[in-house]
Design a binder for these strands. Structure first.
Lengths: 185, 185
DNA sequence: AAAAATATGTAGACCGATCTATTATGGAGT
DNA sequence: ACTCCATAATAGATCGGTCTACATATTTTT
């Protein structure tokens, strides 16, 4: 793949990721993708012969890696598990508020939309969540019930993000942050 | 409104609720709604002059009341807060698994899909969540931080439900249930 | 090194299917 | 008789996807 082609491909993934985050699978219409990325329709099927599902699948996995890397970063710079979770909640809260309550979890909407109707995408979302769980678990080694705790923290963060976006308020994230100490004593 | 009309209206809401739960706002195409309910297309706009958004809005609020009532019931028959949350998780897990991983939270998908693009529906979802929060809060009176705890529990349940549906497994719900005691000591 | 051949990518018109919504008409209930 | 509601045909827009033509690189051949 040449330089030009890679750029076009990237611009398409960027636009899709952005649209998905705001409106999910159906919010990322191909017309909107090509309009937002400034790329022609035909090129889409050149770079993504699998069509929309391939495009969305790659976008989800890509977003999963981005968030995953951010998690690793926060884990490394946190002294305790409680501090780590607090940093995650604050960081995601900033992102959400600064985007005008548009950018919550880049996976959740697609995950729910496709859970029962699109196996390849369901699997992609499942794998992203599993990778995040693994990252959390790695930060909790040594604790008893590290497995359960990792799942619990991920559920807590995802749920708080859902409520915060729906209410258009940081309160759910802040409320969870205030109580996280009790859990990770 | 006559008896016949009310029945038709109800059948439409039933079908919409079912479709929404499986596939969200865009999973509930009007063609599917009328096919599943066996009602004619024109009648839809007779009973719901506001079109699809009115139909979905009423379905969401209706599902919100159904779940809310179930929460109240479980709250009444639980001896402690921890027992209550455990019962909620188990009940939702049963519902999810028995439906073939289709029926998670009847609000979450629509909430995420419409959060940034459809204010009336975003508001409907926000109000349903607020009502559930209030129910949880009522079961926690007496505790310090009852407000925070209600939000935390709702986030936990919503997050666990999202993960369980995505992974097609009860594990996230069970894992949270195992750790809930620590939180509500 | 110049020319020819091939691969890579762009570009947009176009297709059938599906979407929500509207309309006109006819029948059922009271 | 008059309201309530059912019914289907249809409109107009948008959806994902395909197609052909064209342009630009890159390699091969001479």
């Amino acid at each position: 793949m040449g330089v030009k082609g890679a750029e076009t491909r990237d611009r398409m993934l960027d636009a899709t990721q952005e649209l998905i985050e705001t409106g999910g699978y159906f919010g990322a219409g191909l017309n909107q993708v090509i309009a937002a990325s400034g790329t022609p329709r035909g090129s889409l099927y050149f770079h993504f012969p699998g069509g929309k599902d391939q495009l969305v699948g790659e976008s989800v996995r890509r977003a999963g890696r981005t968030i995953g890397d951010a998690l690793e970063g926060l884990a490394d710079s946190s002294a305790s598990a409680a501090e780590f979770v607090d940093a995650v909640l604050r960081s995601l809260g900033d992102r959400l508020e600064e985007s005008g309550w548009r950018k919550g979890c880049p996976v959740a909407t697609v995950a729910l939309e496709t859970a029962s109707t699109n196996d390849p995408l369901q699997e992609a979302c499942s794998e992203v969540y599993a990778s995040w769980e693994a990252t959390l678990r790695a930060r909790l080694t040594g604790r008893p019930d590290a497995d359960d705790l990792a799942v619990l923290i991920l559920a807590l963060v995802e749920g708080a993000l859902l409520l915060a976006r729906t209410h258009r308020s940081r309160e759910p994230l802040d409320g969870v942050a205030r109580q996280i100490g009790v859990l990770l004593r």
